[in-house]
Write a protein that binds this DNA or RNA. Structure first.
Lengths: 197, 197
DNA sequence: AAGCATTGCGCAATTG
DNA sequence: TCAATTGCGCAATGCT
């Protein structure tokens, strides 16, 4: 399902080899046809679901791809199948990854994109995003807190309103009762009056 | 200043070669070449609050646990001057990070902890934790949703209760008014009766 | 000691 | 182009 393909290759900026892979990955990941496919639909599942890492599917023997390949992530990027890397596919040809991105790539290797992890540009972007993320999460946390508080306040308010309703209801009952008594009284009185006069 | 040094050694289980630079570089390192000097000109990182990463405050000496435990391989990468790492940062003393944890550590170096990222044990732990994390976040998401729904329901309920109160209040008013009229009527009648009799 | 649950964080992909 | 979001894995820590 989720064809995340996330690869969090994150670091490893160093070896040029890695970099290539990264370049690949980024672009491929994004392009990944499947990505558009299905997106977020979370089944109500509880258990079974979490078992699927979706990112680095494990080998049948339970080993993660990383372990098996030693560097699978990159390959997975290539193999567009994102999701379930065929277990038998071990024979994959990685030579392509070892080569620098073809000049035909959308963006020239050392350009804007495909930013080397060492570039100042990259770090600036990352740092800005990290700040934005912290800010966003802070905001989310506050929003959640407010919602919880609001729920509590509403609950209290609710209780107060119910008590008020109870009081008013009793009052209405009392008034009605009194009125009915009064009614009888008057009737009686009327009757008496009639008799007397 | 910012002693981040984040090391998100995270992924890149693959080639030990690939990982590390980032570690250092991460925040300040890369951005602020002069890190040691502290002039940290970090870009225009205003945002007062969010500008501070304050990530791994852990160890007293500022080292993160990962660092403390030392995954030598990665550290070695660092030493390799590898790549490009901070040009001026060279003066920083990372020797502490390069050394394996003291034998006096709670657990022997090659033991449970200090798990090599390549060990099956490590991957199993990670995978289990990833599953737990997904589950936990799913739970949190549901909890938040429920809270929001509850707030909405309470708000509606609240509105209904207020309307109810309004009706009851009017009813009370009406009854009282009627009663007062009745009261006058009776009094009047009484008076008339007295006169008549 | 061991294991799941939480939480903060950075990365990368997306969204607006 | 760039900030805001979002899903994810990692590691530290909380909680049994």
């Amino acid at each position: 399902m989720n064809t995340k393909l996330q690869m969090s290759i994150s670091d490893s900026p160093q070896s040029s080899i890695c970099m290539f892979a990264l370049h690949h990955q980024s672009s491929v990941g994004t392009l990944n046809p499947d990505s558009s496919g299905m997106s977020a639909q979370m089944p109500p599942m509880d258990e079974g679901l979490y078992g699927q890492p979706m990112a680095f599917p494990k080998a049948p023997d339970g080993r993660s791809m990383e372990q098996m390949m030693g560097f699978v992530p990159y390959s997975s990027c290539l193999t567009s199948s994102g999701t379930e890397r065929a277990p038998q596919q071990n024979q994959q040809d990685f030579s392509q990854f070892l080569l620098p991105p073809p000049a035909s790539s959308l963006r020239p290797v050392g350009q804007k994109r495909g930013l080397s992890k060492d570039s100042m540009e990259y770090r600036l972007r990352r740092e800005r995003n990290n700040i934005a993320v912290r800010k966003s999460r802070d905001k989310a946390r506050r929003r959640i807190q407010l919602t919880q508080q609001r729920a509590l306040q509403l609950q209290e308010e609710n209780h107060r309103l119910q008590l008020h309703i109870q009081r008013l209801s009793h009052e209405v009952d009392a008034l009605r009762h009194y009125l009915s008594q009064r009614h009888l009284q008057v009737k009686e009185q009327d009757a008496v009056g009639d008799d007397n006069c």
